[in-house]
Amino acid sequence: MSEILVKIKRQDGPKSKSYWEEFKVPLKTNMNVISILMEIQKNPVNAKGQQTVPVVWDCNCLEEVCGACTMVINGVPRQACAALVKDLKQPIVLRPLTKFPVVRDLMVDRNVMFENLKKIQGWIPIDGTYDLGPGPRIAPARRDEAYPIATCMTCGCCMEACPNVNSRTTYIGPAAIAQAKLFNTHPTGAMNKEERLDAVAGDGGIVDCGNAQNCERVCPKLIPLVSIIAEMNRETVFRGFTRWLKGKPQKAAFDEPIG
């Protein structure tokens, strides 16, 4: 029976030193990287024949829509569930994402992506004390523009491949910028357009993009991140100019204390 050679970069805890461990896994038909990891879990013996602890990884949907099993597979960030063994060069090299803190082995903490979504206000505020009624209709053209961005699963591939997302910057990355466009495209979301644009133009915002365009190349959802960032560049430039040229909106007179 043939075997697959797998090299895994392991780390016992957030502060532990990383090390490489090799495994030989029996080849079965239709295997993906997740099933390799499951084989190791069943029989945690490394290539040297030594007993070891099973490799820890994160996964959920197993159909490339949740992004949980994202790791660096043969040098490219992608989902382990969608990485089929028959398409991969051996030895298969697995590493945790490098732009996020490692929890253990292949499991990382991508909380920073959630924080970035909060920064750009990645939601539509409709909560209130009374029924606001139906929202405005969305033009089909806007919907077509928005749908691909809505497939983003916050997997972190774009951040992993971006040379400007690293420990020296606070760059929020392509995913968060794209989400700002998604919610600005929605007619109800557009009511908070300026706030999102100001966040995108803020610290660690869109200006940290250096046009390396790796994000679009590695995006598993084929989101046109390059065009989205370029369009947000235009929007923030216009926003910056109008904000400065027009000045802040004048408050109504009765807001001001008299005397």
């Binding site: 993009c209 046009n211 390059v226 065009s227 370029a230 369009e231 947000m232 560049n233 235009r234 929007e235 923030t236 430039v237």
Partner: peptide, 8 residues
């Protein structure tokens, strides 16, 4: 690209 002129 940076100034949002060439987008597509």
């Amino acid at each position: 690209v940076t100034w949002g002129i060439t987008i597509g």
